[in-house]
Design a binder for these strands. Sequence first.
DNA 1: TCAAGACATCGACAAATGTCAATGTCAGTG
DNA 2: CACTGACATTGACATTTGTCGATGTCTTGA
Lengths: 94, 94
Amino acid sequence: MSEDTASSLAAQFKAIADPNRLRMVSIISASENAEACVCDITEPLNLGQSTVSHHLKILVDAGVLTREKRGVWAYYSLVPGALDSLAGALTGRP
Amino acid sequence: MSEDTASSLAAQFKAIADPNRLRMVSIISASENAEACVCDITEPLNLGQSTVSHHLKILVDAGVLTREKRGVWAYYSLVPGALDSLAGALTGRP
DNA sequence: TCAAGACATCGACAAATGTCAATGTCAGTG
DNA sequence: CACTGACATTGACATTTGTCGATGTCTTGA
């Protein structure tokens, strides 16, 4: 595996290698329409609003989530196929 | 997802969320008999011996690799199903 | 028994990470 | 316009992480 491939893959795994971020992804995928706003996540995880916003940005930057602003709220949802692509890198099966 | 589940999963993902450790896993799985010793890994990754040993320990502690000492050498190999289990946690398919 | 080699462990360090409080930005409402 | 509420951004901090050099442990061979 090339150095670049490894770095890129590691960056994506690093994004989900955090308990709170894993739970965020879980909450979002289990939500209505598979999307959630910051306020939906702050309470169940018992984290400050700025911390949640920070984690969500990391997941967006890694290509795991997308952000869509509607009015005052920012809705986060899963990027289709992103997690499956990561899983495929582990199994070696595309 | 429970807090404990998230922490446990995150710990495993954290173990592979590093470029050099990903390449180590790649080197091992591509090696003869799917096993490699420290000296097989030091050169291609251009890392110090103690650093390689340190990374391999992290992967062993996470349940990704096993260590078997034969004579002077320590052979590392993949734990069967470990990576597939992690991949399954991402896809939701067991 | 001694020396050499393969690996593990320790101590130290800079860099990255997770968290929070404070502040900034922007849309909706009166 | 002023105000409120939902997020984002910034600054600060303690903790964790990746790396190396030095040292320790253990096996093999002379």
